[in-house]
């Protein structure tokens, strides 16, 4: 895929289904196995949900820009927002032993993706980059423990 696929959605939860559908089609067209596709879609959905919750904190008409690239073995997604910047060292998953609602999105991204990085070196917002090597396929939770 020489050109990245770019999609911009408003910061409204009702558009999360749209971004999942587009990504599903893209991954299908590259013959990405269903199990892997499902997990990549989860990561992108969680990243966008985090932008809605933590960067824009409410308004539903702010832009969330997603860029998908599949090059060789790498699936790369970048999520750009123009909202509040978080301190990168404070973005971390909660302890899973502590049974409480919420805080799992970051855990999913870290667990599933090979690389997750945040860049706030810009005037506004954050650029999140996530990369997954497709040929490695599923990484079981047991393998990462």
């Amino acid at each position: 895929m020489s050109q990245p696929i770019k999609l911009s959605i408003p910061s409204d939860p009702k558009y999360l289904g749209l971004i999942r559908k587009v990504l599903q089609e893209l991954l299908n067209s590259h013959d990405v196995p269903d199990d892997t596709a499902r997990r990549l879609i989860l990561c992108v959905d969680e990243a966008c949900a985090n932008v809605i919750k933590h960067s824009y904190e409410g308004p539903c008409d702010e832009p969330i820009e997603a860029t998908f690239t599949i090059e060789g073995d790498d699936f790369k997604v970048q999520i750009r927002d123009y909202g509040k910047q978080c301190k990168i060292d404070q973005i971390k998953p909660r302890c899973l032993e502590d049974l409480k609602p919420g805080g799992l999105g970051t855990h999913f991204m870290n667990e599933i993706m090979d690389e997750v990085s945040y860049c706030t070196d810009r005037a506004k917002g954050t650029l999140l980059t996530m990369i997954k090597k497709l040929k490695t396929g599923l990484t079981s939770t047991q393998d990462k423990r």
Partner: peptide
């Protein structure tokens, strides 16, 4: 499909 908000 379920995400972290559904699990929560």
């Amino acid at each position: 499909y379920i995400d972290s908000s559904g699990i929560a």
